[in-house]
């Protein structure tokens, strides 16, 4: 992919982003052949579009169907350019993710809100954010925010608190932090 620039008059984003789509579920099926599974998962990821400005983001977003219109076990990944949305990518390998389960009636708005917070640098954790992921399931969907360094407690706490605030989550909403190395060991 060639370089991407904001057009004249557009509002540049702090980072360029890539939107990916995958048909697989959040959990991988193969237990024994990690490498084969990694390749298989990589192949299931398709780039939908890219954006370097707010206007390019909306132009992309307005062409997408809403998360509630997606079938179960579909994934949307909005990641910084240069980071592939896989645990094994060097940008993610030492990182982890906050995962929130959301009812279908909340997911459209929540996905839009989390994407906007990332694009607008609302998490205030410098370069720590890698991307956000939506996994459609049944009856609830999963929304996750991936960061670079699972051991960076200040950043992970700030991401959690920002998520609670922007999504207006009740204080008792379960939120789980999963380091990717644990996910890799399990698979």
């Amino acid at each position: 992919l060639g370089p991407l620039e904001p057009a004249p008059g557009e509002h540049k984003l702090q980072y360029n982003y890539c939107l990916w789509f995958a048909k697989k579920g959040c959990h991988r099926t193969s237990i024994t052949q990690v490498k084969a599974t990694e390749q298989e998962y990589g192949k299931s990821l398709h780039i939908v579009g890219r954006c370097a400005s707010v206007e390019q983001w909306w132009s992309l977003y307005c062409h997408l169907i809403k998360p509630t219109a997606l079938k179960p076990y579909r994934e949307l990944h909005l990641f910084k350019s240069g980071i592939k949305p896989m645990w094994e990518d060097p940008g993610n390998a030492k990182g982890g993710k906050w995962v929130i389960k959301l009812r279908k009636n909340k997911i459209d708005r929540a996905w839009e809100t989390v994407c906007m917070a990332m694009l607008g640098e609302q998490f205030l954790v410098g370069p720590e954010i890698c991307g956000v992921v939506l996994c459609t399931r049944f009856p609830e969907d999963l929304l996750s925010v991936w960061n670079r360094t699972a051991t960076d407690q200040a950043s992970t706490a700030r991401i959690r608190d920002t998520l609670r605030r922007i999504l207006n989550l009740p204080p008792n909403t379960p939120m789980e932090y999963k380091p990717h190395c644990d996910s890799l060991k399990k698979s």
Binding site: K12, Q14, V54, W58, S59, C62, E121, Q122
Partner: peptide
């Protein structure tokens, strides 16, 4: 360097700008 920060209201305002279509 300076970070480019946009809040929700600002981003929503640009959703309907002619450049966003």
């Amino acid at each position: 360097g300076t970070r480019i920060i946009y809040d929700r209201a600002f981003l929503m305002n640009l959703k309907n700008s002619p450049l966003s279509r």
